[in-house]
Amino acid sequence: MNNKASWQHFQHIADIGIRGCGNSVEEAFTQAAMAMTAVITDPQLVGNKTCFDVECNSTNLEFLFVDWLNVLIYEMATRHMLFTQFDIQINDGRLKANICGEQVNRKKHQPAVEIKGATLTELQVKKDKQGLWCAQCIVDV
């Protein structure tokens, strides 16, 4: 992994802000997805036994980011899974990803909260002067 890639949480009084940064939009989205998993559990506790493909699309990069997070939230909720590996490709507003994770194990993962949805609050996807892409928003828990 490139050493510029990183994720973090930022503060919101009732909920949690997630931010992912990297050398490309794809890397920023990947890191933000990792930050979202970390809202629920320690990502290091999550294996990558099961993989499948997902996709979403939007011509607006910020809406694409929210859609991406909402796809993951939906898959977490309906498959009862947590994810830690994301292989993303974005072309012409279409995001395709292969995501890997494992079934929630309450004893092992001690999931703190379930995420209801990604919000438009503090939503940003942008590149700084050094070429670093960052994607962020608040998720409702």
Binding site: F63, V66, N70, A77, G117, T119, L120
Partner: peptide, 17 residues
């Protein structure tokens, strides 16, 4: 539960757009 969360998520985006 999940139903309300998904309705909220989808209409929030639709309304914003």
């Amino acid at each position: 539960r999940g139903l309300g969360h998904q309705i909220g998520t989808e209409f929030l985006i639709d309304m914003a757009k």
